[in-house]
Amino acid sequence: MNGMNYFLTKTALDFFIAFGVVIGGALLAGIGSVLVFQAPGPNMADTAEKLKIWAIVAAVGGTIDPIRVIESNMLEGHLSPVVMQICIIVSAYLGAYMGTELIKLICGEAL
């Protein structure tokens, strides 16, 4: 797999992983709310907000490695890997953000 193909694949997968973490966590929070006789909407929206940062961390690998890639390549003057890593993190953020907004829309707390 060439470099650009790997980058696009990684970017897309990180987007959908972050999206899935937020959607899955919020839906399970809704199911849990129903089981304990609470309104699911507010709990789902609140859980989606709280999961957003953790969805990004889960999507990019959950370690400090992405930050190390940025730091080491920037210090050496290699900007291409830095830009690619930042794009991957932004893609994960967009996935988490879109998942949160979708849950808010479903729960009636749209934008």
Rank of each mutant, 00 (worst) to 15 (best):
A92F: 08
I23F: 09
G95F: 02
A12R: 14
H78P: 01
V69P: 01
M74V: 08
M44T: 04
T11K: 10
I106F: 11
L102N: 01
I31V: 15
G25E: 06
A39W: 00
G32T: 06
V90Q: 06
P42H: 08
T63W: 03
L105K: 08
I53R: 00
G20F: 02
A26N: 02
A96L: 12
W54F: 15
A48C: 05
G32H: 04
V22N: 05
N43K: 08
E76V: 00
N73Q: 12
A48F: 00
G41N: 08
F16L: 15
P81K: 06
L51M: 07
A48I: 04
G30V: 02
A55I: 10
A18Q: 04
L79E: 09
Q85W: 08
T11N: 05
T9C: 08
I88G: 10
L35Y: 04
L51Q: 06
L8F: 15
S80R: 12
I103A: 01
N73K: 07
V82F: 06
D14Y: 08
L79R: 00
G24Q: 09
P42S: 13
G25V: 07
A29Q: 12
V90E: 05
F7K: 03
L111W: 13
G99Q: 09
T63P: 00
E109R: 10
I67L: 15
R68N: 11
V90I: 15
G61D: 09
N5Q: 10
E101R: 11
G77Q: 11
L51Y: 03
A29Y: 06
T100H: 11
D14H: 00
F7G: 04
S33Q: 12
I17R: 00
G95T: 10
